[in-house]
Amino acid sequence: MNMNLTLKIWRQKNASDKGKMVDYKVTDISPDMSFLEMLDVLNEQLINKDEEPVAFDHDCREGICGMCSLYINGEAHGPDRAVTTCQLHMRMFKDGDTITIEPFRATAFPVVKDLIVDRSSFDRIQHAGGFISVNTSGNTIDANTIPINKHDADTAFEAATCIGCGACVASCKNSSAMLFVGAKVSQFALLPQGKVEATDRVLNMVKQMDEEGFGNCTNTGACEVECPKGISLENIARMNSEYLKASLKG
Protein backbone atom coordinates (compact mmCIF):
# COMPACT_ATOMS: atom_id res chain seq x y z
CA MET A 1 0.00 0.00 0.00
CA ASN A 2 1.31 3.41 -0.93
CA MET A 3 2.04 5.84 1.89
CA ASN A 4 1.40 9.44 2.84
CA LEU A 5 4.21 10.86 4.96
CA THR A 6 5.19 13.99 6.84
CA LEU A 7 8.85 14.96 6.41
CA LYS A 8 10.72 17.24 8.82
CA ILE A 9 13.77 18.33 6.86
CA TRP A 10 16.73 20.55 7.77
CA ARG A 11 16.84 23.50 5.33
CA GLN A 12 19.90 25.73 5.23
CA LYS A 13 20.57 28.10 2.32
CA ASN A 14 24.35 28.07 2.63
CA ALA A 15 27.20 27.48 5.06
CA SER A 16 26.64 30.76 6.90
CA ASP A 17 22.84 30.50 7.12
CA LYS A 18 21.42 29.53 10.52
CA GLY A 19 19.09 26.87 9.09
CA LYS A 20 15.84 25.39 10.45
CA MET A 21 13.60 22.33 10.28
CA VAL A 22 10.79 22.62 7.70
CA ASP A 23 7.73 20.33 7.39
CA TYR A 24 6.67 18.83 4.04
CA LYS A 25 3.97 16.36 3.01
CA VAL A 26 4.55 13.67 0.39
CA THR A 27 1.77 11.45 -0.88
CA ASP A 28 1.42 8.17 -2.70
CA ILE A 29 4.92 6.92 -1.85
CA SER A 30 5.51 3.31 -2.92
CA PRO A 31 7.11 1.00 -0.32
CA ASP A 32 9.37 -0.25 -3.15
CA MET A 33 10.97 3.18 -3.59
CA SER A 34 14.38 3.88 -2.16
CA PHE A 35 14.63 6.70 0.37
CA LEU A 36 16.41 8.91 -2.16
CA GLU A 37 13.67 8.24 -4.75
CA MET A 38 11.15 9.44 -2.18
CA LEU A 39 13.23 12.65 -1.82
CA ASP A 40 13.26 12.90 -5.64
CA VAL A 41 9.45 12.87 -5.53
CA LEU A 42 9.47 15.64 -2.93
CA ASN A 43 11.90 17.69 -5.04
CA GLU A 44 9.69 17.31 -8.13
CA GLN A 45 6.80 18.67 -6.07
CA LEU A 46 8.92 21.59 -4.88
CA ILE A 47 10.21 22.40 -8.38
CA ASN A 48 6.65 22.32 -9.75
CA LYS A 49 5.71 24.87 -7.09
CA ASP A 50 8.75 27.05 -7.97
CA GLU A 51 10.33 26.31 -4.61
CA GLU A 52 13.97 25.47 -3.96
CA PRO A 53 14.47 21.67 -4.01
CA VAL A 54 16.14 19.98 -1.03
CA ALA A 55 19.88 19.55 -1.66
CA PHE A 56 21.27 16.14 -0.70
CA ASP A 57 24.36 14.13 -1.64
CA HIS A 58 24.13 11.01 -3.81
CA ASP A 59 26.03 9.33 -6.60
CA CYS A 60 26.06 5.59 -7.32
CA ARG A 61 22.79 4.76 -5.52
CA GLU A 62 24.16 1.22 -5.17
CA GLY A 63 25.61 1.51 -1.66
CA ILE A 64 29.26 1.54 -2.72
CA CYS A 65 30.36 5.13 -3.31
CA GLY A 66 29.85 6.59 0.18
CA MET A 67 28.33 9.83 -1.10
CA CYS A 68 24.85 9.63 0.39
CA SER A 69 24.54 10.47 4.05
CA LEU A 70 21.46 11.74 5.98
CA TYR A 71 20.51 11.29 9.63
CA ILE A 72 17.05 9.74 9.43
CA ASN A 73 14.81 9.47 12.50
CA GLY A 74 17.82 9.79 14.78
CA GLU A 75 20.14 7.31 13.03
CA ALA A 76 22.79 7.62 10.34
CA HIS A 77 21.45 6.08 7.11
CA GLY A 78 18.13 5.46 8.87
CA PRO A 79 16.65 2.60 10.87
CA ASP A 80 17.82 -0.32 8.69
CA ARG A 81 21.15 -2.06 9.37
CA ALA A 82 24.20 -2.43 7.09
CA VAL A 83 22.74 -0.19 4.36
CA THR A 84 23.49 3.28 3.08
CA THR A 85 20.65 5.79 2.67
CA CYS A 86 20.39 4.99 -1.05
CA GLN A 87 19.75 1.33 -0.20
CA LEU A 88 17.21 2.17 2.51
CA HIS A 89 13.72 1.38 1.24
CA MET A 90 10.43 3.01 2.08
CA ARG A 91 9.07 -0.36 3.24
CA MET A 92 10.92 0.42 6.51
CA PHE A 93 8.28 3.11 7.17
CA LYS A 94 4.52 3.10 7.69
CA ASP A 95 1.70 5.15 6.20
CA GLY A 96 1.23 8.32 8.27
CA ASP A 97 4.78 8.30 9.68
CA THR A 98 6.67 11.51 10.40
CA ILE A 99 10.29 11.20 9.25
CA THR A 100 12.98 13.55 10.56
CA ILE A 101 15.83 14.11 8.08
CA GLU A 102 18.97 15.96 9.12
CA PRO A 103 22.50 16.35 7.81
CA PHE A 104 25.38 14.47 9.49
CA ARG A 105 26.31 16.70 12.43
CA ALA A 106 29.95 17.32 13.35
CA THR A 107 32.15 20.39 13.59
CA ALA A 108 34.49 18.65 11.14
CA PHE A 109 31.56 18.12 8.70
CA PRO A 110 30.22 21.66 8.17
CA VAL A 111 26.90 21.97 6.36
CA VAL A 112 27.27 23.27 2.80
CA LYS A 113 23.56 23.43 1.98
CA ASP A 114 20.44 21.71 3.36
CA LEU A 115 21.46 18.08 3.86
CA ILE A 116 24.86 18.28 2.17
CA VAL A 117 27.93 18.37 4.42
CA ASP A 118 31.57 18.91 3.55
CA ARG A 119 33.40 15.65 4.33
CA SER A 120 36.73 16.73 2.85
CA SER A 121 38.26 16.35 6.34
CA PHE A 122 38.20 12.60 5.55
CA ASP A 123 40.13 13.27 2.32
CA ARG A 124 42.78 15.22 4.21
CA ILE A 125 43.16 12.34 6.69
CA GLN A 126 43.64 9.96 3.75
CA HIS A 127 46.19 12.29 2.16
CA ALA A 128 48.13 12.30 5.45
CA GLY A 129 48.98 8.61 5.12
CA GLY A 130 46.15 6.42 3.83
CA PHE A 131 48.17 4.97 0.97
CA ILE A 132 51.29 2.94 0.19
CA SER A 133 54.21 4.26 -1.86
CA VAL A 134 54.81 2.08 -4.92
CA ASN A 135 57.52 2.44 -7.52
CA THR A 136 55.67 2.60 -10.84
CA SER A 137 58.76 2.96 -13.06
CA GLY A 138 58.00 -0.31 -14.86
CA ASN A 139 59.58 -2.74 -12.40
CA THR A 140 56.56 -2.92 -10.08
CA ILE A 141 56.30 -6.30 -8.37
CA ASP A 142 52.89 -7.94 -8.51
CA ALA A 143 51.33 -7.84 -5.03
CA ASN A 144 50.24 -11.47 -5.39
CA THR A 145 53.85 -12.70 -5.43
CA ILE A 146 54.03 -12.05 -1.67
CA PRO A 147 52.26 -14.79 0.33
CA ILE A 148 49.85 -13.43 2.94
CA ASN A 149 48.04 -15.58 5.49
CA LYS A 150 44.34 -15.81 4.79
CA HIS A 151 43.17 -14.39 8.12
CA ASP A 152 45.22 -11.21 7.66
CA ALA A 153 44.17 -10.88 4.02
CA ASP A 154 40.48 -11.27 4.94
CA THR A 155 40.71 -8.83 7.88
CA ALA A 156 42.51 -6.25 5.71
CA PHE A 157 39.87 -6.68 3.02
CA GLU A 158 37.04 -6.21 5.51
CA ALA A 159 38.70 -2.98 6.75
CA ALA A 160 39.12 -1.84 3.14
CA THR A 161 35.37 -2.10 2.52
CA CYS A 162 34.93 1.20 4.42
CA ILE A 163 33.38 3.62 1.93
CA GLY A 164 34.19 6.73 4.00
CA CYS A 165 30.56 7.87 4.21
CA GLY A 166 30.99 9.37 7.71
CA ALA A 167 28.13 7.49 9.40
CA CYS A 168 30.57 6.60 12.20
CA VAL A 169 31.19 10.28 12.93
CA ALA A 170 27.50 11.15 12.63
CA SER A 171 26.43 8.35 15.01
CA CYS A 172 29.14 8.89 17.60
CA LYS A 173 28.02 11.06 20.50
CA ASN A 174 31.54 12.56 20.41
CA SER A 175 31.73 12.94 16.61
CA SER A 176 34.81 10.73 16.65
CA ALA A 177 36.31 9.56 13.35
CA MET A 178 38.22 6.67 14.88
CA LEU A 179 36.30 3.88 13.11
CA PHE A 180 37.08 5.45 9.72
CA VAL A 181 40.74 6.10 10.55
CA GLY A 182 41.03 2.72 12.28
CA ALA A 183 39.78 0.98 9.13
CA LYS A 184 42.18 2.91 6.90
CA VAL A 185 45.13 2.22 9.21
CA SER A 186 44.19 -1.46 9.55
CA GLN A 187 43.78 -2.23 5.86
CA PHE A 188 47.45 -1.37 5.33
CA ALA A 189 48.94 -2.36 8.70
CA LEU A 190 47.89 -5.97 8.19
CA LEU A 191 49.58 -6.35 4.80
CA PRO A 192 53.33 -6.59 4.05
CA GLN A 193 53.18 -3.70 1.56
CA GLY A 194 51.61 -1.47 4.22
CA LYS A 195 53.94 -2.39 7.06
CA VAL A 196 56.86 -0.49 5.48
CA GLU A 197 55.27 2.91 6.19
CA ALA A 198 53.10 1.83 9.13
CA THR A 199 54.77 4.05 11.74
CA ASP A 200 54.51 7.31 9.82
CA ARG A 201 51.09 6.42 8.50
CA VAL A 202 49.35 6.01 11.85
CA LEU A 203 51.10 9.01 13.44
CA ASN A 204 50.26 11.31 10.52
CA MET A 205 46.68 10.14 10.07
CA VAL A 206 45.86 10.46 13.79
CA LYS A 207 47.53 13.90 13.89
CA GLN A 208 45.39 15.04 10.95
CA MET A 209 42.26 13.52 12.51
CA ASP A 210 42.86 15.51 15.70
CA GLU A 211 43.56 18.72 13.76
CA GLU A 212 40.26 18.38 11.89
CA GLY A 213 38.36 18.69 15.19
CA PHE A 214 36.85 15.22 15.50
CA GLY A 215 36.04 14.12 19.06
CA ASN A 216 37.60 11.41 21.20
CA CYS A 217 36.32 7.85 21.02
CA THR A 218 34.68 6.63 24.24
CA ASN A 219 33.95 3.15 22.91
CA THR A 220 30.16 3.40 22.86
CA GLY A 221 30.13 1.16 19.79
CA ALA A 222 27.47 3.26 18.01
CA CYS A 223 29.73 3.60 14.95
CA GLU A 224 30.01 -0.16 14.46
CA VAL A 225 26.23 -0.61 14.69
CA GLU A 226 25.44 2.20 12.24
CA CYS A 227 28.26 1.51 9.76
CA PRO A 228 26.70 0.44 6.43
CA LYS A 229 29.70 -1.83 5.81
CA GLY A 230 29.87 -3.39 9.27
CA ILE A 231 33.40 -2.15 10.00
CA SER A 232 34.38 -3.68 13.35
CA LEU A 233 35.57 -1.94 16.53
CA GLU A 234 38.60 -4.26 16.30
CA ASN A 235 39.97 -1.73 13.82
CA ILE A 236 39.95 1.01 16.46
CA ALA A 237 41.76 -1.26 18.92
CA ARG A 238 44.32 -2.10 16.20
CA MET A 239 44.84 1.59 15.45
CA ASN A 240 45.27 2.32 19.17
CA SER A 241 47.92 -0.36 19.48
CA GLU A 242 49.62 0.69 16.19
CA TYR A 243 49.66 4.30 17.40
CA LEU A 244 51.17 3.43 20.76
CA LYS A 245 53.84 1.27 19.13
CA ALA A 246 54.59 4.04 16.62
CA SER A 247 54.78 6.69 19.38
CA LEU A 248 57.31 4.62 21.30
CA LYS A 249 59.39 4.10 18.13
CA GLY A 250 59.24 7.60 16.73
Binding site: W10, G74, E102, G213, T220, V225
Partner: peptide, 21 residues
Protein backbone atom coordinates in the same frame (compact mmCIF):
# COMPACT_ATOMS: atom_id res chain seq x y z
CA UNK B 1 34.51 19.36 26.92
CA UNK B 2 36.53 18.51 23.80
CA UNK B 3 33.87 16.04 22.64
CA UNK B 4 31.09 18.60 23.05
CA UNK B 5 33.07 21.02 20.89
CA UNK B 6 33.21 18.37 18.16
CA UNK B 7 29.43 18.78 17.65
CA UNK B 8 28.16 22.25 18.39
CA UNK B 9 24.75 21.76 16.74
CA UNK B 10 22.74 18.88 18.20
CA UNK B 11 20.40 16.65 16.24
CA UNK B 12 16.71 17.53 16.38
CA UNK B 13 16.07 13.80 16.75
CA UNK B 14 18.68 11.36 18.01
CA UNK B 15 18.01 7.70 18.75
CA UNK B 16 21.09 6.82 20.81
CA UNK B 17 19.42 3.77 22.34
CA UNK B 18 19.33 2.16 18.88
CA UNK B 19 23.08 1.72 18.73
CA UNK B 20 24.66 2.05 22.17
CA UNK B 21 24.05 1.37 25.85
Amino acid sequence: IKNRKARTISYAKNNGAANSS
